[in-house]
Design a protein around this nucleic acid. Structure first.
Length: 235
DNA sequence: GCGACAG
DNA sequence: ATCTTGTCGC
């Protein structure tokens, strides 16, 4: 019953210094090339929220069929928060709860879209990359604000995007998912190329700034009225 | 040394 | 992330 063998490769009881050392080590395993089931049949949104003044982490996952984007399954779990929020170390705060939520899914999604960065990170190991290595699932980082890298201004038209560079290499793209709103910072996490990451995010976006995956996961993670995290039929 | 800093 | 009402602008 060990769904993600790799999720045991390291402890979560770490100091910020140890967490950084771990990122430097695990980044070697990240693969930024398209290596996933095609055609894509399901995509899932991953999100975390906090309650009890931050003492409790709530992780939500909503799977949507692709490309129709209709919800097919969802899970919500609560776990004690064990790591502070430190820019660059977000994954150590949110992933433990996310893994627990993934374990409860009846069916594994073909791809995960996470809140935050993939390789568009100071050490190329944002939450989407970390989650990808631990689960060996294809992942994409969907950031709502800037973390690092340089890029030209993004044209204000739906679908426009410009590459983001850091230290001589492209680490992702800034994407205008909707005109008149702030762009999204897209980067691969694992087993996906930069171009495909941008393409998938745009295909998951309809009339709003955020892709449907993120919207559904956000809604679930913030939903106060729920059955304690039990899976519920959608409709 | 100074500025920046996902959720 | 979270605390929070109405409000300005497309």
């Amino acid at each position: 019953m060990q769904r993600f063998p790799n999720s045991q490769i390291h402890s979560w009881d770490l100091t910020p210094e140890q967490a950084i050392d771990l990122q430097m080590q695990l980044r070697e395993q990240v693969r930024i090339v398209d290596d996933f089931a095609q055609p894509l049949q399901t995509v899932a949104g991953v999100d975390a929220a906090f309650e009890d003044d931050g003492a409790t982490t709530r992780a939500a996952i909503v799977t949507l069929n692709f490309p129709a984007l209709q919800p097919s399954e969802k899970t919500l779990v609560r776990r004690p928060t064990t790591f502070p929020y430190i820019p660059g170390l977000l994954s150590f705060r949110e992933i433990p709860a996310v893994l627990a939520a993934l374990e409860q899914l009846q069916h594994l999604p073909d791809m995960l879209l996470c809140d935050g960065m993939g390789i568009m990170h100071p050490r190329r190991f944002g939450i989407a990359a970390h989650l990808g290595i631990l689960t060996d699932l294809p992942t994409i980082g969907v950031g709502k604000s800037y973390l690092c890298g340089k890029h030209a201004p993004v044209p204000d038209e739906q679908g426009a995007w410009v590459p983001v560079f850091d230290k001589g290499e492209q680490i992702g793209a800034v994407v205008r998912t909707r005109a008149g709103t702030k762009p999204l910072y897209i980067s691969p996490g694992h087993r996906v190329s930069i171009a495909t990451a941008v393409d998938v995010v745009l295909r998951c976006t309809t009339k709003y700034r955020l892709p449907e995956t993120t919207r559904y996961a956000d809604q679930l993670s913030k939903d106060k009225a729920n059955n304690g995290g039990l899976q519920l039929p959608l409709g």
